[in-house]
Design a protein around this nucleic acid. Sequence first.
DNA 1: TTTTTTTAATAGTATTACTTTCATTATATT
DNA 2: AATATAATGAAAGTAATACTATTAAAAAAA
Lengths: 222, 222
Amino acid sequence: MRNLQIKITIGPEHYIKNPEFTSLGKNIVSKSIEMIDELGFESFTFKKLGTVIGSNESSIYRYFESKHSLLVYLISWYWSWIEYKLVFSTMNVDDPKIRLSTCLSILTEDIHEDNSISFINEVLLHKIIIAESSKAYHTKDIDKENEKGYYKTYKRVVHRVGKIVLEINPEFEFPNMLVSTVIEGAHHQRYFSKHLPSLTDVEEGKNNIVRFYKDLVFKTIK
Amino acid sequence: MRNLQIKITIGPEHYIKNPEFTSLGKNIVSKSIEMIDELGFESFTFKKLGTVIGSNESSIYRYFESKHSLLVYLISWYWSWIEYKLVFSTMNVDDPKIRLSTCLSILTEDIHEDNSISFINEVLLHKIIIAESSKAYHTKDIDKENEKGYYKTYKRVVHRVGKIVLEINPEFEFPNMLVSTVIEGAHHQRYFSKHLPSLTDVEEGKNNIVRFYKDLVFKTIK
DNA sequence: TTTTTTTAATAGTATTACTTTCATTATATT
DNA sequence: AATATAATGAAAGTAATACTATTAAAAAAA
């Protein structure tokens, strides 16, 4: 896993101009991650970002058509990165149970190390996914955006892990529900553990979120 | 359950002036539900609401300090109403397994009948909870608001059902995680089934969401 | 070197989420 | 019925947001 130079490719539906190809573009993306984490998505603006990176609001709009689509870009990047991790860490594993267990770890564990795959800080991005990603799809435009393929990387991850569930138990009726419940649940639990801790049973250093969801999945599909 | 005249009381931390006590107040609340459902929370404004109810923006601000706190009020009302349903439908039931099963139905089922307990349309409110409630607590102000007690009705629901889980299996380590996973999960699945259906395994008229979560819970706590 | 592309600077727009002030209209009290 | 008090409405104002449009300067490509 460590220090591999891999390339995560984001489809052109997410930007006007690919930010990966210019230093301004990379700056926009990497600084926006820091700022969204720090200010929250609502208080983050392209104007503030422009000031911080020594550029102009109007230049940022040449890369992303709105601040909403920048958020969707980041989310898409995140799920592509997760998908890469899933593929990489299960490709030589035959036993589907071990493969599922590994996937569940990746989907539910905390990220506290920035592997610096690129100009993107994965630790902060993970925090953004937890705190802000639900805002991306809870929009009146969701159906239109879904048609444009905005959420396809996320769906791909769910389906991939759902298939492993079916390898273990082909009779199981709800593989996608189970996987999406685990993914969203784990993010919720991490958010709650910081802000509404009585809604969780998280204890410092005990990895309860991962343990809870692994146990839940294997019991449920049996 | 039917047609009972019960009273749901919302704490004063949620409003400047209690909307239940005036006809303008009741109008604000009931029309806001319709408009948030129709427009989405982002496009809903107090100005538009004022126009629709034949009143003025500034008058609405005398009831709620912001549109955000109106949303939190609605969410709090919803959870108080759910808590009432939980209490009412389990109070004469001894077997904790049956009690848990009943609670899980209430927490995961769809609401398609407006019992008109009051000026609040529960069908639309349920839709708002599914589509908008995550925006209420994904704020930078969450900790401050939590201290003020904004989320206590939600927490009470989770803890109440968590206790039933412990009655069935006192050794179970994660009752609150399990219950909050089910609650949030069921809402997610209902949203996904409408907008990103491939993330679910919902089939028309088969009640899969309720079945899935009940099965999951009973297997997990065994 | 010239052309083309990219970026910066500035200004502008409609809207939002409020706040303030003041007049009017109900309601309650005497 | 007269008066005091509280609730509402109308209007104007504010700072900020989420953009768009225009034009000029700088950088890169031909």
